[in-house]
Amino acid sequence: MTTIDIKQQPVARLEWEKVALVILLALALIAPSFVYPLFLVRILTFVLFASAYNLIFGYAGLLGFGHAAFFGLASYAVAQSAKTLPITPEIAILFGVFVSAAMGVVFGWLAIRRQGLYFAMITLALAQIVYFFFAQVEWAHGEDGIQSVPRGHFLGLIDLSDNMVMYYFVLGVFLIGFLFLLRVIASPYGEVLKAVRDNEARAISLGYDANAIKLIAFTISAGLAGLAGGLNALSFQLASLSDVHYLLSAEVILMVLIGGAATTIGPVLGAVVVVAMQNYFAPFGAWVLVFQGVIFVVCVLTMRNGIVGVIDMLAKAWVDKSGKAY
């Protein structure tokens, strides 16, 4: 059973997608000269978060509705460990990734027994347990969250307290996570994952253990979501309840949906759009929520393949018109 109808990747996409990714990387390198670095940090962490979620939503066809749990768990783990233990930031982040991935194994093991809506509701329920844990446990400080987390010195040498330095640190870690994800998707394992998504019965008949394959994807996705959450907590020196809130789980679905599920660049574009919207509409208060809702509705009703789907369509029309073959 597929949860999300995804068409075969058109050849034209492969071309423009690569070009666009390279351009975006170049932009990411020079952007902090023009844009506030912490805003860019937010974009990068959410691009990573959305890409990680895309692995289960797009490539595994699992509608998880509790990914904020992994983002938030690592956020709290990194914040608390960086604040109370004598460790360097990269160790704190590794710790965050580890706990999120570990929780991913448990939650995934529980949830992948069911599909579709059940899967969504189980992940949501499990994520709520995590939310209430952090809402109640004393060291998480309830509504205040863990504040003034020290950024520390990378490898004990490079001081990260400057926003510009922090940005390039985040960019480096982000690239490791993002390229790892691309490698996973392009690997033989990634192909099997897509096969399970498209026709689980057939994949099983070919001898693949479908549940194990989904669980691996879920764990990787949880770990990378944790990486994003950890980077976010360290950069903003804060871990708060909004990092584990279900609205964040909804937002990450929105990012992937707007951009285009099961594409490399879709979650990138989606995250940029949503974070930028939140940032620029922040002065209008609750309007952000209303706009997000409207975009959600529009995406579900009219453009289920997201921005990438629209660009593909335009690209196809252009190719057909000019008679040029890729």
Partner: peptide
């Protein structure tokens, strides 16, 4: 969304929730 996968009904109604709650929050 009747003819689409159930997942879309969830996503659609999440969106509607945001609109309704956001409007009252305003």
């Amino acid at each position: 969304v009747y003819d689409l996968d159930h997942a879309y009904s969830l996503l659609l109604t999440i969106g509607l929730t945001m609109v309704l709650e956001g409007a009252f929050r305003l």
